[in-house]
Design a binder for these strands. Structure first.
Lengths: 135, 135
DNA sequence: CTAGTTGCAAAGAGTTTGCATGGCG
DNA sequence: CGCCATGCAAACTCTTTGCAACTAG
């Protein structure tokens, strides 16, 4: 099945790439896209839903729930190495932090040794307060 | 505002308590309750929704998304000390494990020292594979 | 009794889908 | 030019809400 590289698809991917530190609900994403003036073709609502589902299936975008929200958030998966470490999301400022790789390995090995639990790195995001926000 | 202890509320809480190792979507919960024969008064759909929202607000039940599902799961919060340690959920067998308190403290302190990030314990569930399932 | 709770049905919100049109390759 | 992608509107699913009847305390 051929895949076409349409304006709508490019528009969403480039927006998410430009805001790779933030995540958006579908509603937020649509609102943001409509505000952007450097966008040639703002995709329609159903196209956004369809594209996001496909992008999640393809592993280009990650779907998750932020804090206690009842809606899904979408965020671009930044690189393949992104799967390799723990993420920390600040619930105050919303920024996503990446734990150093060796620190990640150390922590996960410690959990394995003590609790005999193999943590799935890709599924792991810690929520809390970042350095700046805790000051 | 007074709070009445109705059959419907008791029925949901006792079911969740009896299955404190499992979590359910609303749909699953309703189906299970309808199957149970030792239940005097099966609550209606809207009552289940209303009660679950209230139970979550009151901190008696926890709402979260399991794996890549698009629906919320509900699980009873097992005890007050439950907030104090990290949870580990096996994505294979579905069981919830509790990390030892001293281990939790050690890990979180290590993260704080290295990444300057204060992890919210209450928000933290690690997903992965438990000891039995990894064999 | 009285006020919180329930169940029904209807409304609301979020998401998916069928189909005709448009546009990429 | 053929086939995939898009947009609209309608359908669908999940959840909430208004209201009259019910019931715990």
């Amino acid at each position: 099945m051929a895949v076409y590289n349409t304006e709508q698809k490019k528009c969403i991917i480039s927006f998410l790439t430009d805001h790779s530190n933030s995540s958006f609900t579908i509603e937020e994403l649509i609102a943001k896209l409509e505000q952007c003036d450097n966008i040639t073709k703002v995709p329609g609502r159903s196209t956004v839903y369809r594209l996001m589902n496909k992008l999640v299936d393809d592993g280009i975008v990650k779907r998750f729930v932020k804090g206690h929200s009842r809606h899904f958030n979408y965020q671009i998966v930044e690189s393949t190495s992104c799967h390799e470490h723990i993420h920390m999301k600040c619930t105050t400022c919303g920024k996503l932090f990446h734990m150093a790789d060796d620190e990640t390995t150390k922590i996960l090995n410690e959990i394995l040794a003590n609790s005999h639990f193999i943590v799935d790195r890709d599924e792991t995001t810690l929520y809390g307060t970042c350095n700046s926000c805790s000051k």
